[in-house]
Design a protein around this nucleic acid. Structure first.
Lengths: 162, 162
DNA sequence: CTTGGAAAGTCAATAATACTGACGTAAATT
DNA sequence: AATTTACGTCAGTATTATTGACTTTCCAAG
């Protein structure tokens, strides 16, 4: 028996110690905090708007004509919770809600001009941070980043990653 | 002039398009959701306990005898917000608060036996998910994951990553 | 064509997390 | 002795989220 077994085993376990995992957990915590900080900062100027509004704007922008039910599935909140946010966005003319053509029970959501503008300003800040992080890390690191995040998330949610 | 310039440029820009960045943003959202879901689930059985309690338990466990001010810096919340959580944890005998020896104004926080037990059960669930994600992705991907997350987080917070 | 169920919206009550502002106490520092 | 730091607390408010109940509209299956 050669040493390879031992070496390979050691290498495999190296990044699976509790300490390495706890470090990864903290990395997720700190990174997510930074990740949300820029849009949060901007939204402080909009009274009664917060992270929930940003998320709705983001996913409506990414999925024009999305239905309420699909948006609920993506966000993972109750309809009562989403409804408060959506109602504000529609009242403020940032989101348009149109009766579905195939199924008139459905509502198709899309951003208005003003909605696109606000989404843009929030997205700009967030993309700037991501771009800088990607650039400094390089393509291979980005691929690893994407792979691990996909493994962390609920597989059922991968549908929504286009 | 050779094609190399063009090719290299193309490769550099490949992962920096708005769409790639937006995908990364969504990956962060979905992954963080999965990342917190297991502890959240467990804490549903503990009325009045939530994510904030988990975070406090985690960082006190990782930094025994941590002071309140340091914990405030790590968590990035106000002392009023942390105090509510800490008061509950101390009252429920999950956290011990000892007057500092060098500086008697400070309080050194540590987990009690019961605190360690609860932290363990929450950590187990979260580490299980991370371990599985790491294992499926492989060491190189994990390194990339770590690099990008470190680039996303606020540099000032890297002090707290041991 | 009626009935069952799906999609959306709403009202009400409550929970968890977080904030600002204002005080108070104790202890270290200047 | 005066100031600053660390901690704790009270009060009020904001944001996001929950459960539960009920309604309207409308598609689709019997």
């Amino acid at each position: 028996m050669v040493d390879l077994t031992k070496a390979a085993k050691g290498e495999n376990l190296l990044f699976l110690t509790d300490d390495q995992l706890l470090q990864g957990i903290e990395l997720m915590f700190f990174a997510y905090k930074g990740f949300t900080s820029d849009p949060d900062q901007i939204l402080q100027n909009y009274a009664s708007y917060g992270r929930a509004h940003h998320r709705a704007l983001h996913f409506i922008n990414r999925n024009p004509n999305i239905t309420v039910n699909t948006l609920l599935d993506i966000l993972g909140v109750t309809k009562q919770s989403l409804n408060r946010v959506l109602r504000q966005l529609v009242e403020d003319n940032l989101v348009e809600s149109q009766v579905g053509k195939r199924d008139r029970r459905e509502r198709n959501l899309k951003l208005t001009e003003a909605g696109q503008e606000l989404e843009r300003s929030l997205s700009d800040a967030q993309r700037k941070r991501m771009r800088s992080a990607y650039k400094a890390a390089g393509p291979d690191a980005v691929q690893g980043f994407r792979t691990v995040l996909q493994n962390i998330m609920d597989p059922k949610m991968k549908n929504h990653l286009e």
